[in-house]
Amino acid sequence: MSRIAVVTGSNKGIGFATVRALCKQIDNGVVYLTARDEGRGQAAVEELKKENLNPRFHQLDVNDQKSIDRLRDHLVKEHGGLDVLVNNAGIAFKHADQTPVSAQAPVTMATNFDGLLAVCHTLFPIIRSHGRVCQIGSECGPTTYVKISDELKSRFKNAATEQDVIQLMQEFLNSAKDGSLKEKGWAERSYGTSKLGVIALARIQAIDIQADNSREDILINCCCPGYTATDMSSYKGPLTIDEGAVTPVYLATLPSGAKEPQGKFIEKKKVTDFW
């Protein structure tokens, strides 16, 4: 059976390079390049076709549940399910941006955490046995973790359900809104906090998927691609987008029957445990 892969937010940057690599590595499969903007997504597909690659495009806005539902319905109708999901879509305010954290927090969280979670809730049920999921995290998650209070550290480390993580994200948003972040033990880091939530979420999702007896051999992990030269980093990162795609592609193509990594945070293809 052909393996079907989806990479969210993949018309540029690490997502684009991930699609390129998966097109080369998934034999006789189908790789979907997705983007919120159809024109940009189609242009990215055409660019890869010039390299004799053949990704397919499907519109996807992770902030729009109807858009996510349309992708799911298409995958079920055309392929009967999904095998590889790389949740890459994300946003970050520039360091020099003067927008207050009270305004940055809800916008950042809506895409990086809520949008990712919505994609997971919608697409996880159609992932087949031997499926692979890679949640794109960031080194900003661990560096944010060291700056929060011991109480919050403990809550992140011991979070056992999705709802535990959702509650933490909501408390961060509430504190950002009312100006009590420092008082409540948070760091004023919207992007880092959103990615910390994603890292914790992947650990829980991996445990939950193993309890699903209807499917087998599904691995869910989170990774840090590394500091990559993309528009998100103002092209300051030392890695090319293809270098940034190495670890996501590694997790997306773990061989059938692999037991590890599972629920881990991966940097440079190696497990990092910062909890």
Rank of each mutant, 00 (worst) to 15 (best):
1 M>W: 01
2 S>F: 02
6 V>H: 06
11 N>T: 04
11 N>C: 02
12 K>W: 02
14 I>W: 04
18 T>D: 01
21 A>G: 02
26 I>N: 10
27 D>M: 11
35 A>S: 14
35 A>T: 09
37 D>C: 01
37 D>E: 11
40 R>Y: 01
40 R>M: 00
40 R>Q: 03
41 G>F: 04
48 L>E: 03
49 K>P: 09
49 K>L: 03
50 K>P: 01
50 K>I: 08
52 N>D: 11
54 N>V: 00
55 P>Q: 04
56 R>K: 13
57 F>D: 01
59 Q>G: 08
61 D>E: 11
61 D>M: 03
62 V>Y: 07
70 R>A: 15
72 R>E: 12
74 H>P: 00
77 K>A: 15
80 G>V: 11
82 L>V: 02
85 L>T: 10
86 V>G: 03
87 N>A: 12
88 N>T: 12
90 G>M: 05
91 I>N: 08
92 A>N: 13
93 F>G: 01
96 A>S: 04
98 Q>L: 02
100 P>Q: 00
103 A>R: 08
105 A>N: 01
107 V>K: 04
109 M>L: 14
109 M>Y: 12
109 M>E: 03
110 A>L: 09
111 T>F: 10
111 T>E: 07
112 N>E: 12
113 F>P: 00
113 F>W: 06
118 A>Q: 10
118 A>G: 11
119 V>L: 05
121 H>S: 13
125 P>S: 06
126 I>C: 08
127 I>C: 05
130 H>G: 07
131 G>M: 12
133 V>D: 09
133 V>M: 12
133 V>I: 15
135 Q>F: 10
141 G>H: 14
142 P>T: 11
144 T>W: 11
145 Y>D: 13
147 K>N: 14
151 E>Y: 06
152 L>K: 15
154 S>P: 00
157 K>R: 15
159 A>P: 12
167 Q>D: 15
172 F>T: 02
173 L>Q: 14
175 S>L: 05
175 S>P: 06
177 K>A: 15
178 D>Q: 15
181 L>V: 12
181 L>Q: 14
181 L>A: 10
183 E>C: 14
184 K>D: 12
185 G>K: 13
186 W>L: 11
187 A>L: 08
188 E>K: 12
191 Y>Q: 08
192 G>P: 14
193 T>Q: 09
194 S>Y: 09
197 G>N: 09
198 V>R: 05
200 A>N: 10
200 A>F: 14
201 L>S: 03
205 Q>E: 14
208 D>P: 00
209 I>T: 12
209 I>H: 02
210 Q>S: 09
211 A>F: 05
212 D>K: 10
213 N>D: 14
216 E>L: 04
219 L>G: 10
220 I>E: 05
222 C>L: 12
224 C>Q: 13
230 T>C: 02
231 D>I: 02
232 M>R: 05
232 M>L: 15
233 S>C: 06
234 S>C: 03
235 Y>M: 02
236 K>M: 07
236 K>I: 00
236 K>P: 00
237 G>W: 13
239 L>N: 11
240 T>G: 05
240 T>H: 10
240 T>E: 13
247 T>R: 05
247 T>F: 03
247 T>I: 06
248 P>T: 03
250 Y>P: 00
251 L>I: 05
255 P>H: 05
255 P>M: 08
261 P>I: 08
263 G>T: 07
268 K>T: 04
